[in-house]
């Protein structure tokens, strides 16, 4: 019971600021108001753990929004790696994003909503290991350029991932031009798929066995946590 109360308090704290920021008074939402089928359109800008993007929002009645959007994010990262006998550089690139089709259902008036939908998951993370120093093989000095490279790519198992979230705020305010939305959720992309490719000396490291070992190691990461903040502008 204590835990339920604590959780309720936390949720309450989460809810209050959005309510305030959005300038929405839930009591002021006219319950009986009818909207034109062609009305309630908005545009949103969002920052999520799946990238930055835009959304087109269509509201239906008091409790339903449909969102179509697209987000993208690419984060490059490089790191020098000292290895046995030679050094190498790891060039990583984390790519997020994709298109989404989401439905928001406002279970608690116009503030808290449950969101479900599907994301076209363009997530692709890769790391390329490239030797940066020459390699001494006996008396032969093999130039770094000839040692080849090893690339590992991680992609989702499913290109279209179901998504579910709990949202606070509104993706399309019925009362104001501007609204703010915060979501906590997750998308299910299945067991991440690992693809290895290699060239020259490092080529054999890209073996099917190694790919399988890596896939087994990350196989449990089937859900990707999503945190999303969105600023929406109602057009009509």
């Amino acid at each position: 019971m204590k835990k339920v109360i604590s959780l309720t308090l936390i949720l309450g704290l989460l809810v209050l600021p959005w309510n305030h920021l959005c300038g929405q008074d839930s009591d002021s939402v006219p319950q009986a108001k009818h909207y034109s089928p062609l009305g309630l359109w908005g545009l949103g800008l969002k920052a999520t753990t799946d990238g930055f993007g835009v959304e087109l929002v269509k509201g239906f009645g008091q409790r339903l929004n449909i969102r179509i959007g697209y987000s993208t994010l690419a984060i490059p990262f490089s790191q020098e790696i000292p290895l046995d006998g030679f050094s190498a550089r790891a060039d990583a690139k984390f790519k997020f994003g994709g298109a989404n089709l989401l439905i928001d259902f406002y279970a608690v008036k116009n503030v808290i909503h449950i969101t479900g939908g599907v994301l076209q998951n363009a997530m692709k993370h890769s790391v390329t290991i490239t030797p940066t120093s020459d390699y001494q093989f006996g008396d032969i000095l093999v130039p770094a350029a000839d040692l080849g490279s090893l690339e590992a790519t991680v992609t989702p198992e499913y290109k279209f991932s179901p998504y579910v979230a709990l949202g606070f705020g509104n993706t399309l305010s019925r009362q104001h031009r501007v609204s703010f939305n915060f979501e906590l959720g997750a998308l299910y992309h299945g067991a991440p798929q690992v693809n290895l490719s290699g060239t020259n000396m490092l080529g054999p490291m890209a073996s099917p066995n190694n790919a399988q070992v890596l896939m087994t190691a990350i196989g449990q990461y089937k859900w990707y946590p999503m945190i999303s903040m969105q600023l929406s502008f109602r057009i009509i």
């Binding site: 959780l7 279970a107 449950i114 579910v164 979230a165 709990l166 997750a186 946590p225």
Partner: peptide, 15 residues
Amino acid sequence: LIGAFILILAMGGPS
């Protein structure tokens, strides 16, 4: 509300 939140944690937990 609590149920929905727990559902999200249950799904995201394995990650």
